[in-house]
Design a protein around this nucleic acid. Structure first.
Lengths: 218, 218
DNA sequence: TAGATTGTTAATCGATTAACAATC
DNA sequence: TAGATTGTTAATCGATTAACAATC
């Protein structure tokens, strides 16, 4: 009943931060130094006032008539999310899902560095996926201790998920990004984020069926 | 400015529907016929009243003291989302991302059927990924016409995304589920849903950094 | 100076929660 | 019947939008 769930403020704004970061990186590459809230608003199809509210999270302030400093915003967002250091993670379960994540452009853009990958399948150990060598899961604890990695990306088959999560917790992981279909049972001090693609598909489907029935509001 | 963006009601509730469906499928397999809102509440870590509100979307009503019929709810959710028919989609770009999606357990659970996969790389054409044969992108239009597929899953490299999307639109696609890092420019009657994993990572990161600074609210 | 853009304060809108009557 | 659970109506909470003063 009263399960103490870790709640966080301003979740919708936080979900938008990577999109700002992505746009800022693009501007930075073009050598552009300042940007106004209306630029983001246009690109992201939201109101400029919402942009200003979101950016206020970072404590970076803009200058009237000039806008925000691209560099400061990049730094501000990275700092807010704890992405200013290299954003290091390890990956467990180096199958198709792992491959996908290692190659995902959105995550590369954002600075995610996967420093180690593990699998329990002896056939995979030693193989390199996207430049990351796959190690035996047995060595997980060593690597965790040595490299101070906070996040584990869990990509094992559903049936193994809980067991691997237990191992990660024992090894002292701080956060688990869960791509399996399994709901993990985890001590409350370890943070988990479950990714379920089906909810995105549900949104698309709902929009499609609403369109049919002409219940749309533009 | 006044870009007519397709907005939809009750988005948070719609995002939760696949989770209900997942649990319902589990109950159904165990032969359980009725379920109460508090069961979902417990499993999903939300309030039971929110469950009842969400389920009301489907127009399925429960019975006091007994709960909701598992079968009716499954049907109701599927119907609401347009998933009662086989949920058919085609996939363009049969690389790692495509592989990942074809094998994703959450999507299989939900009934997604990928009936065709396309790639422009001659080396991939004819190869079978997860039981789906990869065809030449040139044949896309034929297949779309013949099989009445509404949804395309876009998994090509970022640089090709817009061009492939244009082709899909010309071929008469209704919705595009966009896994690329590219923001598509698309006629407004075609619905797009962009998937960006970085926002999930942002949430996890924000929770982790908030934990450090002890700003948590349980 | 005039005008563009930020950022504050208030208003609105929508989602969640609370209270409780209805009902099996 | 008594009690559990739904579903309605009202209250609260949080996110977005509006209005506008501040400022470069």
């Amino acid at each position: 009943m009263n399960t103490r769930v870790f709640k966080i403020d301003k979740l919708p704004a936080i979900r938008r931060l990577p999109a700002y970061l992505h746009l800022l990186r693009g501007l930075s590459e073009q050598g552009i130094k300042f940007v106004s809230s209306s630029y983001f608003a246009e690109e992201m199809q939201i109101q400029s006032i919402l942009v200003r509210k979101d950016l206020a999270l970072t404590r970076i302030s803009g200058t009237p008539r000039i806008g925000y400093s691209v560099g400061s915003l990049i730094q501000g967002i990275e700092e807010f999310l704890g992405w200013n250091e290299n954003l290091k993670a390890l990956l467990v379960g180096a199958g198709q899902i792992g491959s996908f994540i290692l190659g995902n452009q959105n995550l590369i853009n954002v600075g995610l560095k996967i420093v180690a990958a593990f699998d329990s399948d002896p056939k995979k150990i030693g193989v390199s996926v996207h430049g990351v060598a796959i190690s035996d899961s047995a060595r997980l604890e060593d690597v965790l201790r040595r490299d101070q990695i906070g996040i584990a990306i869990l990509c094992v088959p559903a049936g193994e998920a809980q067991q691997v999560a237990d191992m990660l917790v024992t090894a002292g992981i701080k956060g688990i990004w869960n791509f399996t279909a399994t709901k993990l049972i985890i001590p409350e001090e370890v943070i988990t984020q479950k990714e379920d693609l089906a909810s995105g598909l549900a949104v698309l489907s709902a929009k499609l069926t609403k369109r049919h029935t002409s219940q749309h509001s533009w």
